[in-house]
């Protein structure tokens, strides 16, 4: 990835009159960490980076932004928001377009073909003393850690994030401008963790999820980080009717997680944000992937590939499977 090319394109985009800001990544405040970055003018583009740690999904910010009421007599700001997207992020954008969560004319999508991201927890675990290193880069198939003495080559298999191991769409599915050459999709691993759980008996599965859901502290990070959890009036915030009690116990936690997973059924683009931000380490991705797999295999539908598609749960086919119905 040529950063200069990215910065040049970004500078052109933010200089446009009809663009409010560009959402990208820059170096965080410590070591190799990466933080989201809102670029408002061309002078700011020099800080933009794209490294194997740019794992966060910036599409979340499209719907997270607060829409204040426009004072009387003033025109609403109709300028576009530009954002950098990887393959998975672009699917989230496409799904947002399907649901009319954002409009196409409101955004400028800068696509970045993604060779795979690093799971920072795995990196910290395997290379604990490299925290302060300045930079991480792609090095062919593998990753290269620069700074603090000698450069270290980190084998891809060791630190590749789970979602990237399972990734089927590393290239952006939609973009106005693409920076860099498309990458060749790699053979996605099969071990999504779904089959492993399905192989267990019902009681064992219940025990497994009981252990997982009991860890939940109901911080709702998964909901906040998810690019597709953006209802203004969320059932979890409502007090009347109260769908899921706020008590933090196993029963309510399970109801919450079932509701959360269900609301993403046929919509989840498997960007892995929920699982990444979960402070309790609950494997939320497995729930999402299970439903995504059902939708893919039984209905032949994959969300976030076609911005013109019909939303899965708001459409039907007369010959949908119904072997479970008496």
């Amino acid at each position: 990835m040529d950063l200069n090319q990215l910065r040049k394109v970004a500078a052109e985009v933010v200089s446009r009159d009809d663009v409010k800001y560009l959402i990208g990544w820059r170096r965080g405040t410590f070591g190799y960490r990466v933080a989201p970055y809102f670029v408002e003018d061309a002078a700011g583009v020099d800080e933009l980076i794209f490294s194997p740690l740019c794992i966060s999904n910036l599409a979340t910010y499209l719907t997270l932004v607060e829409k204040l009421p426009v004072p009387r007599g003033q025109e609403p700001d109709k300028r576009k928001v530009a954002l950098l997207v990887k393959g998975c992020d672009s699917r989230a954008v496409a799904q947002l377009l399907v649901e009319k969560g954002v409009k196409r004319e409101e955004i400028v999508v800068v696509g970045l073909p993604c060779p795979g991201m690093i799971d920072r927890d795995l990196l910290a675990e395997k290379y604990p003393e490299t925290d302060k290193a300045a930079e991480l880069r792609w090095n062919g198939e593998d990753f290269l850690l620069v700074g603090e003495g000698e450069d270290i080559v980190i084998p891809r298999a060791e630190v590749l994030a789970e979602k990237c191991r399972l990734c089927r769409h590393p290239n952006p599915v939609l973009s106005d401008i693409t920076v860099g050459e498309p990458v060749k999709p790699w053979a996605a691993a099969d071990d999504s963790g779904v089959a492993e759980i399905e192989a267990k008996g019902a009681a064992e599965r219940w025990d497994y999820w009981e252990e997982q859901f009991s860890k939940c502290v109901r911080c709702y990070s998964c909901k906040s980080a998810c690019p597709l959890c953006y209802c203004e009036d969320c059932i979890l915030d409502r007090l009347d009717p109260i769908w899921v009690n706020r008590a933090v116990n196993f029963s309510e936690n399970t109801a919450f997680h079932l509701a959360r997973a269900f609301h993403l059924a046929g919509r989840c683009v498997e960007c892995g944000e929920c699982e990444r931000v979960c402070p309790a380490g609950i494997p939320l991705g497995k729930l999402n992937r299970k439903l995504a797999q059902t939708v893919r295999e039984e209905y032949g539908f994959e969300p976030g590939l076609d911005p013109e598609a019909e939303p899965f749960q708001a459409s039907y086919k007369p010959d949908d499977p119904e072997e479970f119905i008496l």
């Binding site: 779904v194 759980i197 399905e198 019902a202 009681a203 064992e204 599965r205 219940w206 025990d207 497994y208 999820w209 009981e210 399970t254 997680h257 079932l258 997973a261 269900f262 059924a265 046929g266 729930l287 299970k290 439903l291 059902t294 939708v295 039984e298 209905y299 899965f312 749960q313 708001a314 039907y316 086919k317 007369p318 949908d320 499977p321 119904e322 479970f324 119905i325």
Partner: peptide, 23 residues
Amino acid sequence: EGNFYARRRLKLLKELLEFTGVD
């Protein structure tokens, strides 16, 4: 078309409940 939507939705719910270990 209400029952067509129900069919899709409840199929997914059934799969989800089954996956979380509900008989």
